[in-house]
Design a protein around this nucleic acid. Structure first.
Length: 334
DNA sequence: GGCCCTCTTTAGGGCCTT
């Protein structure tokens, strides 16, 4: 019997739903079932009310130039409907671009509104789920290289607050010396591919989310590495980053903290920060879950040093995937 | 690749992620 090289766990759900989710997972991934991947140590401790809905997030822009609104934001939906009505059915390539740009702008405005609302109403920060994450990859070129390991940790803690999985990149790994993950470890039928994993990842994050709340995903160098990599993988398999996700980069936080303490020359990579805060080594460096656990502790120290309450943290350092798109466009137009 | 800093902005080097 093959074992899935993945640990996926959810919590806070009645045991009666356990079997339901396990069954749904098997139904959702017939390819995996055919390859014997769903069996054995795959650990599902519960479910929630959302079910396995990876397909719910699939973006169909390529075929229908429409996007799906997440949650119950009626204003965003009406914005898009309004925009849609302005576009002729005889759309040319040019106005298709205009349409897509307007969709992106409408979604981006919604994200800005979200951050502004939190800034104005500090109580909304209570609805945030903070999740630290990290990826290991076959290299640093997001268009070419692939994710081979991913880990998440909900900072609220509690039972089963982590998600960790190896990913089958379906290619050879040339940088095993960095993270210790070899081709033989992941390039095998019983390790899920990113395409298989995204629905589980979405389900895990949804399970940690508060009702009507949103998520802030935190990583070190998130803006230029982890988030673009994640977005690239989502896009590769026609998935959309949910609109109730924000991202937070701890790298500029670390630079600002060091600067404020007169240590401008101090290195701010994760291992240097671990040493600076005298955090003990947690597992193997450059393995996703170990780095996540380290960053969680570093973040705690940094927010204390910077005297940053959560709403200010979000307002100052968070961004959305759409911000990255706009930044790139602005840069290209210069 | 993007951000930050400086010997700067008409640029270049170093850092950060794997």
């Amino acid at each position: 019997m093959r074992k899935v090289a993945m640990c996926f766990s959810l919590f806070q759900f009645p045991r009666c739903r356990i079997q339901t989710l396990a069954n749904s997972w098997q139904e959702a991934f017939p390819k995996l079932r055919g390859r014997g991947i769903y069996t054995s140590t795959f650990q599902v401790l519960g479910s929630n009310n959302h079910g396995l809905e990876g397909g719910h997030y699939r973006r169909s822009c390529k075929k229908t130039i429409t996007t799906k609104t997440e949650g119950n934001n009626k204003s965003s939906q009406s914005n898009k409907t309004s925009i849609k009505s302005q576009i002729s059915a005889k759309s040319t390539g040019a106005n298709l671009n205009i349409y897509n740009n307007r969709i992106i702008e409408a979604e981006r405005t919604q994200v800005l509104d979200l951050r502004q609302k939190i800034s104005e109403n500090k109580e909304l920060a209570k609805l945030v789920t903070f999740i630290v994450f990290d990826i290991e990859t076959t290299g640093v070129r997001r268009k070419i290289d692939r994710i081979i390991e991913i880990a998440f940790q909900d900072l609220a803690g509690g039972r089963n607050s982590t998600f960790q999985a190896l990913v089958n990149p379906e290619c050879n790994i040339g940088n095993s010396e960095i993270h210790g993950i070899s081709t033989a470890m992941v390039n095998r039928a019983d390790v899920p591919r990113m395409e298989d994993l995204i629905p589980l990842l979405l389900q895990y994050i949804k399970s940690r989310q508060k009702p009507d709340g949103f998520v802030v995903l935190i990583a070190h160098n998130a803006r230029t590495f982890d988030v673009p990599f994640l977005c690239e993988e989502f896009s590769r398999y026609s998935y959309k980053i949910p609109q109730d996700w924000l991202f937070l980069d701890t790298l500029p936080m670390a630079r600002e903290m060091m600067k404020s303490q007169g240590l401008k020359e101090q290195k701010v990579n994760l291992q240097a920060l671990r040493s600076y805060f005298e955090i003990p080594v947690l597992g193997s460096a450059h393995r996703a879950l170990a780095d996540v656990q380290t960053l969680a502790l570093v973040l705690q120290k940094m927010t204390f040093n910077l005297k940053l309450p959560l709403p200010d943290l979000i307002e100052k350092y968070s961004f959305s995937d759409l911000d990255l798109v706009k930044t790139k466009k602005e840069r290209n137009s210069r």
